[in-house]
């Protein structure tokens, strides 16, 4: 906008004062540019999760019906969530392992809430390439370490859902959760 081709135009603009008055052109174009950039914000933000999706970003799970040794698969943020009621033997098996020797060193304590060691709550998403591991459902293969087994590329997780064998780099992710009451967990 600033480069006016005065030589080409009829009715030549008076020579002096032109540069000073170019300021208004620059101001107008810059102002419009700021406006256009501001308009981009809602156009980009509309792709973020909508209010109804966010409303389901936090769920409550009732633990009352899950017996010792059982696990359930539920859905959290449109992905599988494993809630497992560990047996004393499973807890012992998990505690026996030296955490420092693991690929992703974590103890069972670090992966559960204090005083609720028997409740292992993890995402059902293999940390390798995102398949759903087996082991939560009744009669499913639990893998060599008695926890979860991902059939896609053979990752084995132990009873604390830690990666023990196979290509997965990390333990199954533990989401943020808290106990709303003794039998109800609020996830997310």
């Amino acid at each position: 906008m600033a480069t006016l081709e005065h030589s080409e135009t009829p009715g030549e603009v008076a020579g002096d004062g032109v540069r000073r008055r170019d300021f208004i052109n620059i101001a107008a174009v810059s102002f419009a540019g700021v406006g256009a950039a501001t308009v981009l914000l809602p156009l980009i933000n509309q792709m973020n999760p909508s209010a109804d999706v966010l409303a389901l970003a936090s769920i409550e799970v009732d633990l009352a019906a899950i017996k010792e040794g059982q696990a359930i698969k539920t859905i959290f943020r449109k992905q599988p969530l494993f809630v497992r009621h560990l047996t004393a033997a499973e807890i012992a098996a998990a505690d026996k392992v030296d955490a420092a020797s693991l690929r992703d060193p974590q103890t069972l304590e670090q992966r559960t809430l204090a005083g609720k060691k028997q409740w292992l709550i993890t995402m059902g998403v293999c940390t390798h390439l995102g398949c759903v591991p087996l082991g939560a459902g009744e009669g499913e293969v639990k893998g060599e370490f008695g926890g979860y087994f991902c059939p896609c590329h053979g990752s084995h997780y132990d009873t604390a859902a830690r990666i023990r064998k196979g290509p997965a780099p990390k333990n199954l992710e533990v989401p943020v959760y808290k106990f709303a009451s003794d039998t109800v967990v609020q996830v997310g």
Binding site: L4, P10, G11, R21, A27, A28, A32, G35, T38
Partner: peptide, 22 residues
């Protein structure tokens, strides 16, 4: 408010560019 200012600026810019051209 933004558009009002922008339009006023655009008007001055328009008058400036056309200054001296009948």
């Amino acid at each position: 408010i933004f558009l009002l200012i922008a339009t006023v600026l655009a008007w001055f810019s328009y008058r400036n560019i056309w200054a001296g051209i009948k």
